[in-house]
Amino acid sequence: MESQDEGIRVIAITLIFILLVIVIIALFLVFIKRKNNLLTEKQQAQREFENAIAETQIEIREQTLRNISWELHDNIGQLLTLAKIQLHQLSGSSEDISGVSETISKSLTELRALSKLINPDALKNIMLPEALSLEVARFNRLNFIEATLSVAGEEKLIDDKAEIILFRILQEFFSNTIKHAKASKLEVTLNYTDEKLTITATDNGKGFDKSLETPNKGIGLQNMKSRGKLIGAEIELESVIEKGTQLTIIHYL
């Protein structure tokens, strides 16, 4: 009888051991599967992030080419045409050509400013404040709008990819301000602290009803927020009809 009980105990212990092994193996397989799923999700998220960065770079490049086209036609082209007219008027004359020289010098200055935009890697070589300064200077130079840029706090280094996203979000806002808002003034501020960069862009345009705004219409708040989410930035847009619109971006350093 004792030997039979001993045999039952051995069998029971063996079964318990087997069950424990099975449970451990099952838990291990679940762990491996979850780990693989997390790695796959992380890789997918990284691919989506890289694709978004690439698309943003293309959009910036396309916008830059449009800007170059406008400047060549509306600004530099007019200056060179003026120089040509002045030279024609002075043909065979002994009058002072300083006016022509000044016009040509201005054209050269405009071309040098424009050359900074032609570089496809411009944002990789300059920091966000300088990139925005070039945009603001261009708006004022072409009389698109009266624009100002102010920087407060000690300037901090920001990841290149984050700068690209931030610049594109602001570029979208600027484009809307100039093309649709009928604003006469644009104010951009960058406020650096140890923890974050707060960017505000404010216009005095016609404003809009945010409750009626959709991702495919108007300023595209959802599109901006989607871009901001890629780099963990908070995006807020406030607008009052006939008083203007303010974009606020908070990027944690």
Rank of each mutant, 00 (worst) to 15 (best):
Q4G: 02
E6L: 11
G7N: 07
R9H: 06
R9F: 04
V10F: 11
I11V: 06
I11Y: 04
I13E: 04
V21E: 01
V21N: 08
I24C: 10
A26E: 12
A26F: 12
A26T: 15
F28V: 09
L29M: 15
F31M: 02
I32L: 10
R34Q: 14
N36Q: 02
Q43H: 07
Q44F: 07
Q46P: 13
E48T: 14
I53L: 05
I60F: 08
E62L: 11
E62R: 11
L65W: 07
L65G: 04
S69G: 10
S69N: 10
N75W: 00
A83H: 07
S98H: 14
S98D: 03
S98Y: 10
G99N: 14
V100I: 14
V100G: 03
T103A: 03
T103R: 04
L111S: 08
R112W: 06
A113W: 00
S115Y: 11
S115P: 11
K116W: 08
A122K: 15
A122S: 14
P129S: 00
P129Y: 02
E130M: 10
L134T: 10
E135S: 09
V136T: 13
A137S: 14
F139S: 05
R141Y: 02
L142Q: 08
A147H: 03
L149C: 04
V151I: 12
E155Q: 01
I158Y: 03
A162M: 08
I169N: 01
I169Y: 00
Q171W: 11
F174C: 06
S175T: 12
T177I: 12
A183R: 00
A183D: 06
L186V: 13
L186M: 10
E187R: 14
T189V: 10
L190Q: 03
L190A: 05
K196L: 10
I199A: 03
T200Y: 01
K206R: 09
D209I: 13
N216T: 09
M224L: 07
R227H: 12
I231A: 12
E242H: 09
K243H: 10
G244C: 07
G244Y: 02
Q246F: 06
I250G: 00
H251F: 10
